[in-house]
Design a binder for these strands. Structure first.
Lengths: 356, 356
DNA sequence: CTGTTAGCGCGTTCAG
DNA sequence: CTGAACGCGCTAACAG
């Protein structure tokens, strides 16, 4: 049962045509065409012999693979895995193979993968996961060397992506733009602002924020959007109520614990800049013997799928993660118009922030 | 800034050696060796020129790629995404590229992907996701044509995998074995049995089971292990308390809703054959105006990560998903001894099933 | 419309 | 120990 790989020339010989004709019959050349009966015959014997093309060989000959690279921070995180599902689906429709890289936050891996994609001549590459904030907005505490390294990494990544695109590859990022490359641009500031307004409407006046990692652009934008809107509403958030933390469940837990222990008067509601942090924060509240929302209300951002089953239901800003994945795919493949696809979030009010 | 791809012959010319020597210097030939100073010189110019090999070309020449195929049912499901994280990490250590296929339960996609892997000469392929139960155990209701098709699909998949292995590729499945191929064998029946015993020890006597899809092997094994143990404990589960349903959150919700509406006397505890179903079931209980665990206790299986934040804490059987991913990778690559890696679950008792 | 031929970039014989 | 030459499977000129 172990059939030695059947190549195109086998098919051609069997069908009694030349290699070129077989090739043209099977995947239709751009310029040439093939007489119907021959085509039929070739296709038939290909099917009979169980032929399927060797992607590496095609890649060699065409100078282009059929691979779509997807880079995420952590594939086990529901945010990224849902995006990945969207990308996988769209890629399948396009007949592309998805190659996955889960960088676990190491930026050098990100860069390495982009370079791999380039030399592999991937069709396109999608970077999901937040870019860093502009250097001027980085807090003072950061050391000069760290800043220099960050800058070097940013530059390297952008130029690797640009080189990839210049070599004919498609690029899309998810979150914020890198240089002038195509991007599915999530309106983080706007969504967070809308959330702030909604909470204010519900009667909240004293706010706290679990702001995520300083330097992560998505986290920074959400924080800023939230704070600015509250400022405008005449309800500024005291600096002490804005706590940084990792962009993870445990980061949310820790940040909330700090907030709980540090302040005598608790905020009425705490906004965690993403859902997994919010969920961790809720755990911290419970473990402190307090209740959500009676003692502290909590809100998040993203509306990840697993939220359906946390209770009380978490107020959040929904962004369509799976669609973002397919949108990014379309963008990277040049199937979409323009090079910026804006995505806006929708505030979803649930029981974790009842009117007060 | 757009450097045209630098090939091995560029490096060779720059270094003043032949193509062959350059190749040998860079990735060390099996038989030949290269004089130290030449090697050094080649490596240096390669670095300077930013050379990196073209994977497609290497694949052509070597007859083998550096790709590891991973097939899952649904990458957005935390069960699979956690396994994928383990695979990605292990693959990175091995210097392999992960190509991901999310089949969304379509078995023909599974088959297509295995055949693609063979054509592409992938190094290895990992199938995560449950195989089907042997045909003789399929419920009567299934139609003859459906059975025939199932059988054809099973056979095709197994022979595709075997052909892939015979062509030199590594194979591993996760869950149950396909033929005699290497497998990370999860002791579903044993884990479910241990759970049954633990619940019995806690004083439960009237049980229900949300059994998952009829025909899915993992679901069937868990159900059987649970029921058999209870039989042995003299505590048989009435047939009416065993309800099928999809292997998803919504499947659990629907199945539990049916159980709630159909039966006058509720089971004291309901075992859902995986965690996402259990979580759906808990939602159904709540929506019926009842309480977990006061009115019905609930238990699941897997201990997916997101469980940390459901409340009450869900009793379950923990299986080490990420490790399973790396184990499967090792197995597929022939890095592990033997071809069967057994994995046993550990019962984790939480608040969803208090002693009674 | 079809067949012949020349590479794609690299590993690997086979001579030197 | 090194270099020249061949071929992996396929596509894209180039003839016919």
């Amino acid at each position: 049962m172990s059939d030695a790989p059947v190549t195109l020339s086998h098919v051609a010989r069997e069908a009694g045509v030349s290699l070129a004709t077989a090739s043209r019959a099977i995947n239709g050349s751009a310029t040439r065409s093939v007489r119907e009966d021959l085509r039929e015959r070739v296709l038939e014997t290909a099917r009979r012999l169980g032929y399927s093309p060797d992607p590496s060989a095609q890649a060699m000959a065409r100078g282009r693979t059929t691979a779509l690279g997807l880079v995420v921070h952590d594939i086990a995180d529901p945010y990224f895995s849902t995006i990945a599902a969207g990308v996988a689906r769209a890629a399948e429709r396009e007949g592309l193979i998805v190659t996955l890289a889960s960088t676990e936050q190491r930026r050098d891996r990100e860069l390495a993968f982009v370079e791999l994609a380039r030399r592999q001549r991937s069709r396109a590459i999608i970077l999901a996961g937040s870019r860093l904030v502009p250097l001027r907005d980085v807090p003072e505490e950061a050391s000069a060397e760290a800043l220099a390294q960050r800058q070097a990494e940013d530059t390297a990544l952008e130029s690797a992506l640009t080189a990839f695109r210049d070599a004919g590859g498609g690029v899309a990022t998810i979150g914020q733009a890198v240089g002038d490359l195509p991007v599915v641009e999530i309106d983080n500031a706007g969504g967070a602002g809308a959330l702030a307004r909604a909470l204010h409407d519900r009667g909240y006046r004293r706010f706290g924020v679990l702001a995520g990692p300083p330097g992560l652009r998505t986290a920074a934008d959400r924080t800023t959007g939230f704070l600015d809107t509250l400022d405008a509403l005449g309800c500024p958030v005291p600096a002490g109520s804005v706590v940084p933390g990792d962009f993870t469940r445990d980061g949310g837990y820790t940040a909330m614990a700090r907030l709980l222990s540090a302040r005598a008067d608790l905020p009425q509601v705490v906004f965690a800049v993403n859902d997994v942090m919010a969920v961790g924060a809720m755990a911290a509240v419970r473990e402190a013997g307090l209740s959500v929302p009676d003692d502290v209300a909590v809100a998040g951002f993203d509306d990840i799928h697993t939220l359906r089953d946390v209770s009380p239901g978490l107020t959040t800003v929904r962004i369509p993660l799976a669609e973002i994945g397919s949108l990014a795919t379309a963008l990277a493949l040049g199937r979409a118009e323009g090079s910026r696809a804006p995505v806006h979030g929708e505030v979803v009010l649930r029981d974790s922030t009842p009117p007060r």
